[in-house]
Amino acid sequence: MSVTSPQPGWWNTPLHKEEKIWITIAFVWCILITLAMPAWHLFGTQNAASEYYKISTEDFGFLTDAFIEKYTVGEDSGVPVVAPPAGADIFLRGQQWGWDPVLKLKQGSTYRLHLSSVDVNHSMSLLPMNMNFKAVPGWDNVLTITPTSSGSFNLICNEFCGIGHHSMNGKIIVDS
């Protein structure tokens, strides 16, 4: 009974065969899942970034403004559209409530995307790929990205960031 003290000597009761088999399979499975993560870093193509820097929200805002000023090519729904050259350092700023600028990228080119927030926590969600990365104030989350398909992609925020949270979105355009 689970509500009474076990028989003396319970620690030495041998395991039943079926239970041994089950635990062995479960343990092997746990180890395999664990090893899958480092293995994916070696053989997989998509991994979360592990490049990051501390940066003040003021500095990040300053860098983003300079980036926008340098490469602006137009405007879309009130948000500046920026077309940086291939291989450039590009900036995406989360703030209540929008992602700016709109990034105009080239399919197959590689960029270093600096993702951060200048106010509260945000999280960038790229649709319809459904890829999600955090934008934390005070931290520059650096993602090395290569767009593999062209078209227009939505960005939404998936970290609650105040009453206007659902209205926070943005856009990435990829030209072929």
């Binding site: 729904s77 790929m129 998936n158 949270h165 659902h166 979105n169």
Partner: peptide, 17 residues
Amino acid sequence: FGVSRRSWDMNGVDGPF
């Protein structure tokens, strides 16, 4: 499909896009 948690509306209402 990427629908966010903790979001009142998923269609970008009041947003730019």
